[in-house]
Design a protein around this nucleic acid. Structure first.
Length: 204
DNA sequence: AGGAAGATCTACT
DNA sequence: GTAGATCTTCCTA
């Protein structure tokens, strides 16, 4: 399951707007297996997305958009394919705005299997265990150096510091669905998704 | 102006 | 399994 090859940043094509213009649950599942690629001070950090959660709008009590538009949720009402970064308990969390036309929603990236730039991630986390480097939403933003500076960033733009790409290596894997983690009021739906048997998820 | 909440993490028992 | 750290935003006064 390890991927050793080195990415050529110039050949990478980010996922387009169309990819994100769908039901958040669909996008959350489709993001599994894709690569998050970060240009970090000239170095490439990358890893495979292995765990995500879908969030909706007014009907979703766990969502930042539940009570309508505010400083954090406003992006969820707008254009898909932008990063939504906000802080909870002093940790940065990163989402991608994703919803069908005129809808509201986003996908939280919860865990990543680190691939490239692991040494830099270890420095950022002050941690040597690569299994725990990105196994949680607050951990992966620290590993990748993602912060409020990236709020509103359009990740469908080829020149963005952060993009998500399909490297066409993972084609088949089973997806486990569960309830979302850490939310006070969840919906009676399974909106957390992760790759079965993957060692880098935040929990099984 | 103050306080509570929150899509978390770590260290402890 | 529980507690404490931590910080931005929002609500109430």
């Amino acid at each position: 399951m390890k991927l050793i090859n080195v990415l050529d940043i110039n050949k990478l094509q980010p996922l387009t707007c169309d990819f994100y213009e769908d039901d958040p649950k669909v996008v959350a599942k489709n993001l599994l297996g894709k690569l998050l690629v970060r240009n970090y001070k000239g170095n490439i950090l990358s890893g495979r997305i292995v765990e995500t959660e879908a969030y909706y709008g007014r009907g979703d009590p766990a969502s930042r958009a539940y009570k309508g538009i505010n400083k954090i949720s406003e992006l969820m009402f707008g254009e898909s394919g932008k990063l939504l970064v906000y802080v909870v308990h002093a940790h940065h969390l990163v989402n991608v705005v994703a919803h069908s036309f005129n809808e509201v929603g986003a996908v939280l990236i919860r865990s990543i299997e680190p691939m490239q730039g692991i040494d830099i991630m270890k420095i950022n986390r002050n941690l040597d265990n690569s299994l725990q480097l990105c196994s949680g939403p607050g951990k992966l933003t620290k590993s990748f150096g993602i912060c409020k500076d990236h709020h509103r960033l359009n990740i469908t733009n080829k020149d963005s510091e952060i993009i998500i790409v399909d490297d066409n290596i993972f084609r088949k894997f089973d997806i486990i669905e569960s309830n979302r983690i850490g939310v006070k009021k969840d919906l009676p739906r399974r909106l957390r998704f992760y790759i079965k048997d993957n060692e880098w998820v935040s929990r099984k």
